[in-house]
Design a protein around this nucleic acid. Structure first.
Lengths: 338, 338
DNA sequence: GTGAAAGCGCTAACAG
DNA sequence: CTGTTAGCGCTTTCAC
């Protein structure tokens, strides 16, 4: 491939002039510019971003660390990031960690030696070790989808409030025996979400003078099967729920199947509300009422923040809480005789 | 950040020696090596992949062009690519095109000036223009998920055969009036898939001596709603299908809803088979019998091919056809009295 | 085994 | 407006 020297020689100018042309410097005569452009085109010359990055110590590249891109949630987030990055002439290097701390560290180091301008980190958890590496590396970064005790930029939704709202929505329809299917409360994976959402549920119940019943609180693992099993156990436990809040859509679908297999109907006998608003939640039967997570916006906002930080702009807000909202479909209805 | 000079000075060696140490050259004394490593660690030195890439004219980076990463299908493919790349110490730059030819071209040029070692291109169509750009750029590339008339490496499934098999599966259960919901047959988007699958359907019908009825062939656009509408029209057309083949799972779900709303049951009255085997096809009711596309393998295989090409290895096969398979669940049953 | 020096392709003073 | 030159951080001959 032709390089800057080739162009300079053939155009009878110095490489500085060629460089100026390709950087839209105003200090080039129209004549020289036209000539350089012509020669460049003939030669099929494109400036090497690599060499430019080395010279400028700026790569216009952003590292992106997520657990698993094959999960539609992350797909949505990443799409938001990429769109914004593309707008600002950044490109992204994608890394999948499966939430493994080792992989996270390995990737951060790789991105560092690639001189990325910044990193967007979306993991189920920001460990102390990873936090330290970030700080030591001095690479600008923002956390997506996850808050932290550390004073770093992040963009999240208010999981507790979202769960509170979901529960209160159920309560507003007259339901009293409200069950919850949550995820693991210990270990790394998605733990924080589970804890926060369970808290929001409990708070809503208390605030509304409803009894919190252990039989109606069940742990699952975010898979459909686990949601199914947990719901079935709940139904069989003796105290029948009139509504169930599953903290993910997939588990909610498992819950609906369980209700059906138990011989009841959803929403007539038991209402179900989910969380996430994944694509298919609107085509299932019944279509799923759910708490919508702004996946795309989470990514887009994180990218905007990071690009600002990279450009040394001041953030008006270091921590952004995106709004969730309840998408009302057909899996919830009013309590009988309410 | 410390660079190679800093390390060399502090370790009292030349930068050549430092370089040798970090490239595992055998021609370094144990003593020097240990010393360099120690100093490097103290300084937190990591070789700059950027500078190395410039010097070696090799970036260990692969460009990845897909229509839309928020689509779970591409998420699966990309995950396969990333896993293989990671194994071979490559990293990926992700680009979303929404199947826009302009964006494809823009991204290819960008990747070229970033000196990526190769590109994996997954689009609904390889246009003549894009093909030419690829060839002119001399960048190694492989097509994923899509064949072409050109002599370039690609990895695909046999869409026609897959549709043939799906149809024959239905036939083997005694169904005769078999409908198909296909996608657009003209324009860019997903056209090739539609054409091939429709062809496979027709071939299977003919081979088995079944009549091909225009009323049972309906076009939709891969959305659930369109699958729903197309199916409803088909049901209302007078000639009732005993089975429907929808060429995507999402449309298949729309079809099932339509059958239900029409007052019939799936699979008892009308069997439905889908295509893709997306995650949720196993949790819907009825769970969906479908043709499984090897998403992860498509990506993984494409990545392996590309890495071989980059390494100047000879490919045993330039075009790889991955096996599809039918995942039997509950949306198909035998024809009454069969 | 080790070091000096010439690139890799580009940007950015600086001098004219 | 334009050219010269010194880097950016690393690899790789070629001597010693």
């Amino acid at each position: 491939m032709a390089n800057i020297d080739d162009v300079a020689k053939l155009a009878n100018v110095s490489i500085a002039t060629v460089s100026r042309v390709f950087n839209n410097s105003p200090y080039v005569s129209e004549k020289a510019k036209a000539n350089v452009l012509k020669v460049a085109k003939d030669l099929g010359y494109e400036p090497s971003i690599l060499a430019r990055s080395l010279a400028m110590k700026k790569t216009n590249t952003i590292g992106l660390i997520v657990p698993d891109i094959s999960n539609p949630y992350y797909g949505g987030v990443v799409r938001g990031i990429e769109d914004v990055c593309n707008l600002y002439k950044y490109n992204i290097i994608l890394c999948n960690t499966d939430n493994s701390k080792d992989k996270e560290i390995q990737y951060i180091n790789m991105l560092k030696s690639r001189w990325v301008d910044g990193i967007i980190f979306h993991s189920s958890y920001l460990s102390d070790e990873v936090y330290k590496i970030f700080v030591d590396s001095r690479i600008p970064f923002v956390l997506a989808g996850r808050g932290t005790k550390y004073d770093v930029p992040y963009v999240v939704i208010d999981n507790k409030k979202a769960a509170y709202d979901a529960t209160e929505y159920l309560i507003s329809m007259g339901h009293k025996n409200i069950g919850i299917i949550h995820g693991p409360l210990e270990g790394m994976r998605e733990t924080v979400d589970s804890v926060d959402r369970l808290m929001g549920y409990k708070e809503a119940m208390k605030k509304n003078g409803l009894e919190i019943c252990d039989e109606l609180i069940r742990e699952a693992n975010f898979k459909a099967k686990s949601g199914y099993d947990a719901t079935l156990e709940m139904l069989k436990s003796g105290i029948l729920p009139d509504a169930v809040f599953a903290i993910s859509d997939i588990m909610a679908m498992g819950a609906i199947n369980a209700i059906f297999d138990f011989g009841l109907k959803c929403p007539e006998d038991v209402s179900v509300i989910g969380f996430d608003n994944i694509d298919i939640s609107e085509i299932t039967r019944p279509s799923l009422t759910t708490v919508a997570q702004p996946m795309y916006d989470t990514g887009a906002t994180a990218a905007k923040m990071l690009i600002k930080i990279i450009g040394n702009e001041i953030l008006d807000k270091k921590n952004i809480i995106l709004k969730h909202n309840i998408v009302i479909r057909n899996s919830c209805c009013k309590f009988k005789n309410f």
